[in-house]
């Protein structure tokens, strides 16, 4: 889909195709421009290339995992200010603590939220930015 200048761009990093397409479909309804990445390497190069307004990041990814992606984003000057929401089915307290230490903005466990909840969180983070 072509991006118009008023649209905010959201990068979805998700290796599961169905979850990715459902999320994209729901967010497009909110008039966001959607980009996707399916693994860690892909995510890092896309973030640096397009500098999205927000990143929805899964943790269990092929190759580099979400923690490494987050670390890279936060340690790169041009990308470190981008809001990142971890959106994963991992979610033990240790995972949450680790992500917080790496500077994540929010941590959502997929199974515990609906896509509507996610939209709410995204809107809030983008408005606060």
């Amino acid at each position: 889909m072509e991006k118009d200048s008023s649209q905010k761009t959201i990068l979805i990093v998700e290796d599961d195709e169905f979850l990715r397409s459902l999320t994209a479909k729901r967010l497009e309804k909110e008039n966001y421009h959607i980009e996707v990445a399916v693994d860690g390497e892909n995510a890092i190069s896309t973030v640096e290339g397009i500098k999205p307004d927000l990143i929805l990041l899964d943790l269990l990814l092929p190759g580099k995992d979400g923690f490494e992606v987050l670390k890279k984003i936060r340690s790169t000057e041009v990308t470190k200010g981008i809001p990142v929401i971890i959106f994963s089915n991992l979610g033990q307290k240790e995972d949450i603590e680790k992500a917080k230490a790496l500077g994540v903005d929010d941590f959502l466990i997929k199974a515990n939220f609906t896509l509507d909840d996610v939209v709410g969180k995204i809107k809030k983070l983008i408005a606060d930015k």
Binding site: D16, F18, L19, L22, T23, K25, R26, K29, L60, N89, L90, Q92, I109, K110, A111, T114, L115, D116
Partner: peptide, 26 residues
């Protein structure tokens, strides 16, 4: 237990979101 439960949550998320989107009329 840890691996299976985490893995189980992924397809369940898909089911849950689908149902939710159907309920919302999306």
């Amino acid at each position: 237990v840890s691996v299976t439960t985490h893995q189980l949550r992924t397809p369940l998320s898909a089911v849950k979101w689908t149902f939710h989107m159907l309920l919302q009329g999306s």
